[in-house]
Nucleic acid binder design. Structure first.
Lengths: 186, 186
DNA sequence: CAGATATTTGAACGATAGTTCTACTTGTAC
DNA sequence: GTACAAGTAGAACTATCGTTCAAATATCTG
């Protein structure tokens, strides 16, 4: 991982950069992707506006960094479910249901940035991660590629539904829908 | 329907209003929801900026109108599939696959506005229409509520996948995935 | 120490946004 | 015709945006 003789200036700079990414994510969570401006991010991070531009020449760079952060977070969660014990499908259902509660902001940020990906090619590869991860989880449950695709699509659709309905979601129900889409319960 | 003694001024105004809505949609298709400004819409419609504000006090009003227009369009398509002859599931698959080709802009507009709905309550009821329509279609194919939910979720997820992947979609494959999610093929 | 490099700031510029206001045109009612 | 209401245009105000830039600070090199 680390090999460079650590330049104090660059180390400090990398830290600032990380802080700015974090601040960007905070802005996305609070105001949505449309609220991401250099000024808003800089204010959130407590630095000068020009510093945000110093590290991220364009807003796209900021958005890519923020989406990567969220995507990495979800990737870690799914890997945890895949590698851990217990019912993986239920773990996925629980993760999805989180979008209705404490994880709503994060899920919303992921969706907003993913939607942005349709128009900004730089975001597209990152936006694909979520579905690839779900596909990997599905692959541990079935060998049928059609079942994998159906589960991935259903997961995505359930997230959408939960975000738009904006009502408490039922883990049991989500689990049943996922199982039905997967088709292994019949 | 019509009962008022038609005031020439108001009739002309209603026409203008419709033109502005259409212009808003054109802007969303071309630049995305983020590109919707009173100025951009007015320019697109060929009217003064202040006129856009005269009819739509806030940008939200414009977005609601645009989303309603797109949602109505999809509602009509699905009703057509439900009421028409032929395989309804295949009709849905064909509609979804359109999002990869000529209907990409429209599908993208629908997704952008739906995403916006998560933060702007005024858009939420309209954003639900698509899923309600798919549910109605599903209800003609099965009595199992779980199968309905799975099909609705899968349809949504497939649209997402197609929009983000941005590659030609295969109707046959989409149809198979939908059938698998529905679960009636087993 | 001095000099070079990296980071950070604050002010400023130009562009564009939403909004307001006044004047003008068009249509209705009398 | 006049009086009034709805619609329309264009200029102007204020705010905020991305961006630039010179100066200041911090760190490393020797």
């Amino acid at each position: 991982m680390s090999e460079e003789p650590v330049d104090g200036r660059r180390a400090r700079g990398a830290k600032r950069r990380a802080e700015i990414i974090e601040a960007t994510l905070a802005v996305v969570l609070r105001e949505g992707a449309a609220g991401v401006t250099h000024r808003a991010v800089a204010t959130q991070a407590g630095v000068a506006t020009s510093l945000s531009i110093y590290y991220f020449a364009t807003l796209d760079d900021l958005l890519v960094a923020a989406l990567s952060s969220v995507a990495d977070s979800y990737t870690a969660r799914i890997r945890q479910i895949i590698d851990g014990p217990g019912d993986k499908l239920r773990g996925l259902a629980e993760l999805i249901v989180e979008s209705a509660g404490p994880g709503r902001d994060k899920a919303l940020a992921e969706r907003e940035l993913s939607t942005l990906a349709a128009r900004r090619p730089a975001l597209a590869p990152i936006a694909r991660h979520w579905r690839e991860n779900v596909a990997a989880l599905a692959a541990t449950l079935t060998d049928d590629p059609l079942a994998v695709d159906a589960l991935v699509a259903a997961s995505d659709g359930l997230c959408t539904a939960i975000l738009i309905e904006n009502v408490p979601a039922d883990t049991e129900h989500v689990h049943r829908v996922l199982a039905h889409a997967l088709g292994t319960d019949r």
